[in-house]
Design a protein around this nucleic acid. Structure first.
Lengths: 335, 335
DNA sequence: TTGAAAGCGCTACCAT
DNA sequence: ATGGTAGCGCTTTCAA
């Protein structure tokens, strides 16, 4: 292993103090042009980069951001993390990423690790914040941590005191209903997800509460399933078993919609003639999977920008900020 | 913001020295049972967790690992990262994840950030290491960094002095050819990827060099495309335009295979009767997309275990270690 | 068994 | 314009 070079070595070689080197690197305070040049050359020559560890300890302020997702191998989280990291990286942040499996114990462990790592902020997705049945103590843990390190919740949680950045699907769900109505779909079913998940419940209610005014009837029964392609497969199998297929199925995300589409293909149902399919999120594959999934699209770039902006403005931000990110309704081949 | 509690506060409240608190937390040195209990209670009460930053600075050894991928929104990288993080987390590591876009400048920037963050090790995927046309200076940068921080290359790179963990597809590609032969596929094409990418070239050669002995003829022309579903779509369109479709298409990964499958569906080709499709990697969706993609499967868990083991054993490891991870040939509906 | 104190690499205050 | 130095929170050696 090579010796790691420090500010002391640079200072010695340049015959200046560490203070001067520090000033030069951070552009703080006046330094003569001669010394600046001398020191910069040394920095270049030795490819010196100051220790973020020491800097963080000294300033008690790091450029690291903690990111918690249930599982990054789910394309929605992967896409959002991707966009966020790309933007954050350009602004000098480095992201730590942990999978929580939506397990509250593990979430707590990760939260503690992030505190110990002195991260600048914590971006929190899924898990307890998305769970309406989550116990009070887990929510207050969030608020306690938020006293030490700002938490950005990517779920809208009433009464939770922390910055919240989330998708606003209200307008799009109206457009979806309007479109379905105009296209002649009257018998429509909701499918997938679980009722205790905030995001899911919100999407369902937006549909349920507005369908009537578009002359659409939503089936009473909602077949639930987990948020994956196989979830969609199973749910569609169940629907097929139970009887008549509706004219259109609104799946609670694109992964489930993909599973439903597969299952429809398998059973020789023609999409969208025999059954239309709609999803949410607009995953990358949704546009490439034949015949293309009609979806209420997340604007990942806007979402990521909102998150990074929030991180940048943490100091002058209401602890109660609510930052909605607008979605967009996109029509493709499945409707 | 709450005051962050430190070892000094704990020590004061317990009327002991910080040395004693440190000994208790780390189980190093003898401490009387009375003091141990006293201090432990305080630690619990205040939910105290020592600053990893200070610890890292002091010990010049962190529990952070740097992970570089071209783009985490690609399911192969997401799955591998996921498995690795889950295992690493259990062993006390925290992972930093950066997207390089396979951009060599950005890779260099990230490498420097990881050094500044004093990460324990760097796991490097894709980009320059997978590029046979990569200039010498970028490779020697890897070796230079490796002098300071161990790099684990997830690509087999001849002559590169660093630990290398990679998929070994040799055996599986034999099984694939044998299977295709027995199933009566004689006219087979390779499709997708780029010839300058090591992993791709290796896969192609394994097929090309062994097809004959199984009585299979591989088409001369390889239509290239990027490693995505849309890449597969386009490549298949091109193949369709050029003329007769082969009996089977070996796609260089499952994403491309998915695109090819979609395009086949779109053109009413029956899979596998009119054309059979094979992929590599065994992504999650490969088993759910109807009718299921036949693939040479990556064993993600084994791969992740190999990576974390390597991180654990870095000290007593040859700087030239080569750690192959065996793949498995899986037959599904597309053949 | 325990404590005092040096020092990890850096920044910023206080002098000059 | 420049340097000396305290101190961020921790571990570990040295003494007692």
């Amino acid at each position: 292993m090579d010796e790691k070079i420090t500010i002391v070595e640079i200072a010695k070689m340049a015959n200046v103090s560490t203070a001067t080197v520090s000033r030069i690197m951070n552009n703080t305070g006046k330094v003569s042009e001669a010394k600046r040049k001398l020191v910069m050359d040394l920095i270049d020559k030795y490819d010196y980069k100051p220790s973020q560890i020491a800097k963080t300890l000294k300033l008690s302020k790091s450029n690291t951001v903690g990111f918690i997702v249930p599982h990054i191998n789910s394309p929605y989280y992967a896409q959002l993390f991707y966009e966020t990291e790309v933007i954050a990286q350009k602004q000098g942040y480095t992201l730590m990423l942990c999978n929580s499996e939506s397990d509250k114990m593990l979430e707590s462990k990760i939260l503690k690790e992030f505190i110990a790592a002195n991260v600048r902020a914590i971006v929190f997705l899924g898990g307890r914040l998305d769970d309406m049945e989550c116990g009070k103590k887990y929510i207050s843990e969030i608020e306690n941590v938020n006293q030490k390190i700002p938490i950005i919740s990517c779920c809208e949680v009433p009464n939770l005191k922390c910055v919240q950045v989330y998708q606003e699907t209200q307008k799009s769900s109206g457009e979806l209903l309007s479109y379905l109505s105009k296209s002649g779909y009257r018998d429509v079913a909701l499918l997938g997800g679980y009722g205790n998940i905030r995001t899911t419940q919100k999407r369902r209610e937006e549909i349920l509460n507005n369908a009537e005014k578009y002359g659409i009837s939503i089936r009473r029964e909602i077949i639930e399933c987990d948020y994956s392609v196989s979830g969609g497969n199973h749910a569609m199998q169940e629907m097929l078993k139970k009887g008549e297929v509706p004219q259109a199925i609104i799946c609670i995300n694109d992964l489930i919609a993909t599973g439903v589409l597969n299952e429809a293909n398998k059973h020789k149902l023609r999409v969208p003639i025999d059954v239309a399919i709609v999803g949410y999120d607009n995953l990358d594959i949704s546009q490439y999977i034949y015949p293309g999934i009609t979806t209420i699209a997340c604007d990942y770039t806007a979402y990521a920008n909102a998150i990074v902006s929030a991180i940048n403005n943490l100091d002058n931000m209401e602890c109660n900020s609510r930052i909605p990110v607008q979605t967009e309704f996109i029509v493709r081949g499945t409707t």
